[in-house]
């Protein structure tokens, strides 16, 4: 599995080359589209007018400036448009771990050391851990700029991509009415309730929908006509089960190439 992004974290004049891998995975056991004889199908682009299937090099990206009018833009142009400072994660600001409202967080990634950077990597992780700090920067990944917060988590650097402030609405923008004076009795009523039902830790849920799906599939496979068995079936790299991601991370953290 190839990293999602490869680049350098810098703080001061120190640079830490890293590889970035997803830390979240979609747990939705998505269903595969099969043809009438059970053959797995592929999704293809085709030209609307001619009906001809198109390969990747026969397509371009277009921005619609007016209805039906497009300006095309190439991968190279998009790459060259990225501001120089956003090609790396340049940590020019550190904030306390709890300083960022969760509203901003979007997706998590693990960073692993690349190209003999283990010492510098461990140094940054240790310094941030001891100060209980997270580093903040913006960077461009896969054609999009994102603010990012770098956390030191159990010796590992974790990146949480964030939303830009203009992507987060305000209560006023949404049109919520102004705050009314709040009755202390009503607040106390809720405080009592909150205290009574408080727990110290959050326990994440199991994916019950996925469990139900598996249970149903197990039941249905008893009938042979419900089952398609493929011979010599080769999976695509990006379809491999999530467990492989942990293997990839273990390998790249332990310095094995």
């Amino acid at each position: 599995m190839r990293p999602f992004w490869s680049g350098t974290i810098t703080f001061g004049l120190v640079s830490v080359p890293v590889n970035l891998y997803p830390a979240n995975r979609s747990n939705k056991t998505s269903l595969r589209m099969l043809g009438p004889d059970g053959e797995p199908l592929a999704r293809k682009y085709y030209a609307e007018k001619t009906g001809k299937d198109l390969e990747a090099d026969e397509m371009v990206r277009g921005y619609e400036t007016d209805a039906g009018k497009f300006v095309t833009i190439s991968d190279e142009e998009l790459e060259r448009l990225a501001p120089e400072k956003t090609r790396d994660i340049d940590l020019t600001r550190f904030v306390k771990e709890d300083a960022i409202p969760p509203l901003y967080f979007e997706r998590g990634y693990f960073l692993t050391p690349a190209g003999n950077s283990e010492k510098a990597y461990r140094l940054l992780a240790e310094a941030m851990k001891e100060r209980r700090d997270v580093g903040v920067a913006t960077f461009v990944m896969r054609g999009k700029e994102r603010p990012v917060a770098i956390f030191s988590d159990n010796g590992i650097l974790r990146a949480e991509t964030m939303r830009f402030p203009d992507e987060v609405r305000s209560f006023k923008q949404v049109g919520l009415s102004a705050k009314k004076t709040v009755s202390p009795t009503a607040v106390r009523k809720f405080e009592t309730l909150i205290k009574r039902k408080s727990k110290r830790q959050f326990t994440p849920d199991k994916d019950e929908a996925a469990d139900r799906l598996l249970k149903l599939a197990k039941k249905k496979q008893a009938k042979p006509s419900n089952v398609v068995q493929l011979k010599d079936y080769q999976r695509q790299d990006d379809e491999r089960p999530a467990i492989d991601l942990i293997q990839v991370l273990k390998k790249s953290l332990s310095g094995r190439k």
Binding site: L34, K218, V228
Partner: peptide
């Protein structure tokens, strides 16, 4: 198109 749940590699339950 039919939908299949891949219960084992290469084995789909419709």
């Amino acid at each position: 198109i039919r939908k299949g749940y891949e219960i084992e590699p290469g084995r789909f339950v419709i």
